[in-house]
Every structure is written in C-alpha cells, then in structure tokens.
Amino acid sequence: APAIDMQLYAGIHSACYNYITTQSTDTHKPDANSGSDIYNQLDKYFSELARSILSGLDTPDNSAEETELLARLLPAFQRFSSGAQTVNRLLNYVNRHYVRRAIDEDKGWLGMHDVMADFVRSPSAPSPLSIEEEKAARMASIAKLLGSPRSTGINLTTVTDDSPSRETLAQKYRERKVAVLATWGYDPNASDSGSSSGTAFRSTTTLAEAEAAAEAASESGRVILIGSLAHRRFRFDCVEPLLAIPKGVKKKGKKKKKNGGQGQGTEVAEDEKLAEGLAGVSLQAGGASSQAAGSSSSQAGGSSSQIGGSSTQQQDLPGPKGRLARAVKHLLEVDERPETERIRIAGELADMLRKVGVKIDHPLRKKLESFVVG
C-alpha cells in the first residue's frame, strides 16, 4: 500500500476529531455513540472491496480455476491486508475514540459477558440469585473491570475492589483470553515473542497478531480495531464464499446461504457444518447482537444439532467442492512446481486464513499447516 503523506494524515485525523467532538455536543448523545457512523461506513467500504476482489477471481474459463485461483487471491489479499494496516493507522483516532470505548462497554471481541456465561453456569459458584439477577448485578460492574485489554494484554490486575467475585471474574476473563489467544497461536510462555523470522511459516505468533486474528474471527456485531474489521470483512465477503460448498450445480461467485435450514435437507446441513469451522463463534457464544447485514455463516450459531448430525454426509463427497479447497488440493497433490514454491504458497494461504479469522480446526487450515510443517 502506498504511504500516506503527513499532511493528509493530519488532515484526516483533525477531520475525524472535529466530526466526532462536534457530533457529541450537538446531539447530547453519549460519546460512545459518536464515531459509529464512520465505523459502519468503513465496514461497508471493506465489504464492497472484498466483494469486488471475489468477483475479480472469476476466470472466463472454468478449467483454469484450480491453477489460477491462488495466483490471483493471494496478491489481492496481501494488497488488501497491507492497505488495511495503513487505514488502521490513518484512522487511529476512530480506533482510540470509538473502538476503545466500545470495548470498555463490553462490545469487544471477547466480552465479559462471554466469560460470565460460563461463570454463572459453573457449579462452583452457587448463588441464591437467579442466573439473570446474578448476571444483571455483575454486568453493572463490568465497565470498571474492563480497563484497556488491548494495550496491556490484560490489565485487570490493577482493580482494587473489595468484592471477591470481581477478582474471580477478572481471573476468569484472563484465563479465557489466554485460552482463546492460544488457539490463534499465541504462547504466553514462549521466550521468543518478537516478530517472526523470514520463514514461510512462523512458529511463534505475537500477542498482537493473535489478538488481531481473534478479532477478525468475531461476529459482525463485535467492535474491533479497524485493521481487524477489514480482515473480518474479507472473511465474510471473500473467503467464506470461496470455502462454501455450492448447492447443486455450481454457480460461480453467487452462493447464498440459507440460515433458516427449514426443509432444505442435506445441502443446508453441509453448508452449516462448514460454517462451524469458519468463524470463532463457539468460543464466543455470548449472545451478542449480530448485525443482520452480510454476516453470513457466523449467524449459523445456535445450530448445535448440526454438530453431530451431518458428519456422514461430508464423507460421501468424492472430493472437495469448495473453490478454495479444490485449489488447495491441486496445489498439494497435482501442481508440478518445486516443493519449496508450493510450500511458500501454502504458507501464505495458511497465513491469510489465520489473519481473517478462520479457526485452526477448519479442515483446510489443518491440511495446509500440516503440509507446510511436514
């Protein structure tokens, strides 16, 4: 991505500052609401861009798809991703003003309510209150507990409150966060927490990288840093359609997911099974309100009946049906380029999937990472 000159940077920073501060005095609304329009418009912008990248992947000749798809997708993602980092810096005022406040209000990728959902169900924490009362009482103190999770990792240790349950909650939050970040490759005990080496595949992931991936894996209702917002949109609007199993006769680029699942039989079940592997929903099933627009498969949450229900159907498939899965199969099994080259491409793709928030237990990520490592 091209560098932004200082004047433009300063101009946009002040424009955002002026807009947000003016808006909040004009409307007498809480500060946290200002900035949401910029944020939502950015989300739309990234969405349109990701869609146009997806449609740009189509070839006039279907037969070239397996060899050409990755050759076009990976550079497009690199460009998108590096641009996203630049925009993240350019609009850092929005990150600081709007995103951070939203996180403080428990609208971030890992909310205290996610942790509490576990906590109130735990038999080790019996309560005379009903679960709802308990939850309501604790929700009232959450804002204080949530300091600035991103800047320091977790700074809840500084809370000096006399309530023991707050301590317990803070501890639960820390444990949960470490556990989730571990699934994104962060090892808090690793001595080397610096940036990765130049190898195609990294063995260590920094805290910031893991958290960015965890953010990108969140549902669309969660407020995350602008760079991660772009990656999440890339997942929703470009990667997930490429991973999706088309229904019936394959139609390129236009696959609609039916979330209702009524009466669609195996096709819907297969799609939802795939969707389970995509988003980081299962670790965050806290019932955050998701926006209806464009959140695609992550909205399939709650379909727990699908977990065991459709496993046999996928085994009947003769080969991968998703566009990306076919391209990967070709890369790993058919492609005649030197192995080092194929490993490099597989590593780049694995990296892309992680960055946009496709979970490690997704079959394609597993396949790619074992190819790269093995």
Partner: peptide, 19 residues
C-alpha cells in the same frame, strides 16, 4: 456533516486500498 467527512476520507481510502 458525515457526508462531508466521508467525502474527505474516501479518496484517501481508495488511494490506500485500491490496486
């Protein structure tokens, strides 16, 4: 207004994001 702000931001976004 928001439109004015966005009209200011958009060209920068395009410059950064578009190939």
């Amino acid at each position: 207004s928001f439109q004015t702000l966005w009209a200011y931001i958009l060209p920068a976004l395009d410059k950064i994001m578009l190939p």
